[in-house]
């Protein structure tokens, strides 16, 4: 697996009721799409557990195994943002990870501001795509 900068492989946005709203994969994850998606998916179990006790939106690293690490952020409305990185990557500092999630959250807000967007349905948004591209390219 290619292991660039922050090692971000997948970004997933999941609604409060666990509806999959948006997900993006980096080019590096193209050969392990299923594994990365499955890892992001199962990490939501831990996110759900942590979110109930969290005192801030950013939950930090919530789950890891020998291949991947998962970071999470939960908005005030219960929307879950999950970022999966390669476990062998250098990783980012908490402040940098917070900034990434803030950026994602901002892009998400822009996306759902579309008056034709139906809440709870999958999102198709250039804002999110652009934001994810930038994160993967970092």
């Amino acid at each position: 697996m290619i292991n660039p900068g922050n090692g971000a492989l997948c970004i997933s946005i999941v609604g409060k009721e666990n509806a999959r709203l948006w997900s993006g994969l980096s080019d590096d994850a193209s050969r392990v799409v299923c594994e990365v998606e499955l890892f992001a998916h199962v990490s939501l179990d831990i996110v759900d557990e942590r979110a109930t006790k969290a005192t801030e939106n950013y939950l930090g690293q919530v789950y890891s195994d020998h291949l991947y690490k998962c970071f999470a952020y939960v908005s005030s409305t219960g929307v879950k943002f999950v970022l999966v990185t390669d476990s062998k990557s250098q990783g980012l500092r908490d402040s940098e990870m917070r900034a990434i999630f803030k950026k994602l959250h901002h892009a998400y807000c822009n996306a759902i501001s579309n008056p034709f967007y139906v809440v709870g349905q999958p999102i198709k948004s250039k804002h999110l795509t652009e934001a994810a591209k930038q994160i993967f390219a970092q």
Binding site: R20, S23, V33, E37, L38, H41
Partner: peptide, 8 residues
């Protein structure tokens, strides 16, 4: 389960 990731 309806919420599985699409590729999976």
């Amino acid at each position: 389960e309806g919420t599985l990731p699409e590729n999976l």
